[in-house]
């Protein structure tokens, strides 16, 4: 028996919205500790890793670990039927998990809707992501990162990210010319969500596809801050942290000429 009730249903709507462009089918791995998902895009350039802790649900029940194979487009269509204020409950009888039940209850509980999503068999290779202590770890407002990606997209498909002790610089070069955005660390004590911090092991400079980075910024509504972790010749980690868990995106670098 599997049951997970999330009072903040909007969170689940946003989470699915932030992965739907990247991944079409994925396995939700459910265990007594919570729900996780790991999936790559078709071109194996980007990977999303989602983790929601059992404590964030009330109640949460998962008698034994199992996987829910889901077509994310279909799940998204059903999630569109949930109101932003609804409480969302996921249920599956783990034995013959051939469908996932979704319950949407509105706050005054006089409107309850129930949907059944047919599950699929998805054999997806799992990647082992090595624990890395990164050359550079940058924290910044998530809206700022979203804007930088959107702005520099007008110049080029690629962005070079340079991190030094007291600056992170995003540079784009294209047909029309060039553009760059430089951010300096700030420690606005009164508004921590607006702060920019740089933890530097050593300077690092890497190039990435802005198409993918812009896609990752669909996670912006999930958190005020975004964490960027970079190491030479390693995939970029973009993390949006929530009370209930996190969503992490990994992006393989582009190798300059």
């Amino acid at each position: 028996m599997f049951e997970a009730r999330l009072t903040q249903g909007a969170l689940l709507k946003r989470l699915l919205d932030s992965v739907k462009e990247l991944v079409t089918d994925a396995n939700f791995d459910c265990s007594e500790t919570g729900i996780s998902l790991q999936a790559m895009d078709n071109s194996h350039v980007a990977l999303v890793s989602l983790s929601l802790r059992a404590e964030g649900f009330n109640p949460y029940r998962c008698d034994r670990g199992f996987s829910l194979g889901v077509n994310l487009n279909s799940l998204n269509k059903i999630m569109k039927c949930a109101g932003n204020e609804d409480v969302i409950t996921l249920k599956a009888d783990d034995s013959s998990a051939d469908s996932l039940c979704l319950l949407f209850e509105n706050s005054s509980n006089e409107r309850v809707s129930e949907y059944e999503l047919k599950l699929m068999d998805i054999d997806q290779e799992h990647l082992s992501i090595p624990e890395t202590d990164y050359d550079a770890t940058v924290m910044m407002p998530s809206a700022e990162f979203q804007r930088i990606c959107r702005d520099l997209m007008v110049v080029s498909e690629s962005v070079t990210i340079d991190v030094s002790k007291d600056e992170i610089k995003f540079t784009a070069e294209g047909e029309l010319g060039t553009g760059n955005v430089k951010l300096k660390p700030t420690s606005t004590i009164d508004k921590p969500e607006e702060s920019i911090t740089i933890e530097l092991g050593q300077t690092v400079s890497l190039q990435f596809s802005l198409k993918y980075l812009s896609n990752f910024t669909r996670g912006t509504p999930l958190s005020d801050q975004v964490m960027l972790c970079l190491s030479d010749n390693m995939p970029l980690l973009v993390e949006y942290k929530m009370d209930i868990g996190y969503i992490r995106y990994y992006l393989a670098p582009k190798v300059g000429d």
Partner: peptide
Amino acid sequence: DSSQKSLLNFFGKI
């Protein structure tokens, strides 16, 4: 244009 690497160059399959 520069060449896009694959994650499989960096992360091993389990």
